[in-house]
């Protein structure tokens, strides 16, 4: 990896334990990503993936190590790093327009009201909420609320967009449409995005790189999986791609068995040089039984 737009350098998170010592959630975590990529951390609950994202956002601080973004070590939160929260976190006393305008006016404090509203409107249109500007969050469905959350994050044109399981609270259909929306917008704008998920299909559809974390406590980044699927993939025929099952099986296999046994079976794992894999079936089109089973 030559260009390191985001570089997580040896971070650790420890909490004081009841019996004096301390519990290590993860330690010596190294991870980097170039600009314009979509990265995704997958792991079981308790592996500290949310903590990693909160550290990236500046909402939490690592016990050790630093995070460098665009050549600068981060300290605290920043308008360069927008967060899309799992619970959407809209301010319920503001309208859709109010919520986005709040973010816009926080970034550009000298802008007058009309300029702020015009800027906010373009992002409301972008996520398909035209006509709902004056609704309050309580009048919106779960999917629409998260669209507002996405528009709010995009409206401040951040260097990085951070998403913490943004679609896990939504039903499958809404989740699908929103994934399409996020993929379209991030590709259009070349947005560097970092997401946390436990949904394998979501990671495969959206991410360029998938970071596999072992189980905590004492979690490590085990592997970086490069997505072998083409960049112009679509959600509908994703599963028809020759490499689909190779990738899916690799990740599932990791989550089901290897995430538990990785630390024990790989004693010489070097956290600074995590293996990069690119799962693919060499004789791709064969596996008819699997293909017909999903149709």
């Amino acid at each position: 990896m030559t260009t390191k737009f985001i570089s997580i350098e040896g971070i650790a998170k420890r909490y004081p334990a009841a019996a004096g010592g301390s519990t290590t959630i993860f330690e010596d975590l190294w991870l980097s990503m170039p600009s314009g990529e979509f990265g995704c951390i997958i792991g079981h609950s308790g592996c500290g993936k949310t903590t990693v994202l909160n550290i990236l956002a500046g909402l939490d601080e690592p016990s050790e190590g630093t995070v460098i973004v665009d050549g600068q070590a981060i300290s605290g939160t920043s308008l360069d790093r927008a967060v899309i929260f799992q619970s959407h976190a809209l301010l319920p006393w503001l309208t859709v327009m109010g919520n986005i305008a709040y973010a816009v006016s926080s970034k550009w404090r000298k802008w007058d009201k009309t300029k702020v509203r015009a800027h906010a409107q373009t992002y409301i249109d972008k996520v398909g909420l035209t006509g709902s500007e004056h609704k309050r969050p309580s009048e919106l469905s779960g999917g629409m609320k998260q669209r507002v959350g996405i528009a709010r994050a995009l409206s401040i044109t951040p260097k990085i967009m951070l998403m913490d399981e943004p679609f896990s609270a939504l039903d499958a259909l809404t989740r699908g449409t929103l994934q399409d929306e996020v993929r379209r917008v991030t590709l259009e704008t070349g947005q560097t995005t970092f997401m946390i998920t436990h949904d394998v299909d979501e990671a495969m559809y959206l991410a360029d790189k998938i970071f596999l974390m072992t189980n905590g406590p004492g979690a490590v980044l085990a592997e970086i999986v490069e997505n072998p699927l083409p960049r112009d993939r679509s959600r509908i025929d994703l599963h028809k791609h020759p490499h689909y099952y190779a990738l899916r099986n690799h990740i599932i296999d990791f989550l089901v068995t290897r995430s538990k046994t990785f630390t024990a079976t790989t004693p010489h794992h070097d956290p600074r040089h995590v293996p990069v894999v690119r799962p693919a079936f060499p004789e791709a089109p064969t596996m008819p039984s699997l293909h017909s089973a999903t149709r």
């Binding site: 909402l59 605290g76 929260f85 926080s106």
Partner: peptide, 24 residues
């Protein structure tokens, strides 16, 4: 989470008190 929204938007303490904490 509302406080975190204000934090990620780099809203200062006074503006945070009036725009997030007071209405909430």
């Amino acid at each position: 989470e509302w406080i975190n929204v204000a934090r990620t938007l780099e809203v200062g303490t006074f503006r945070r008190a009036f725009t997030v904490i007071l209405p909430a």
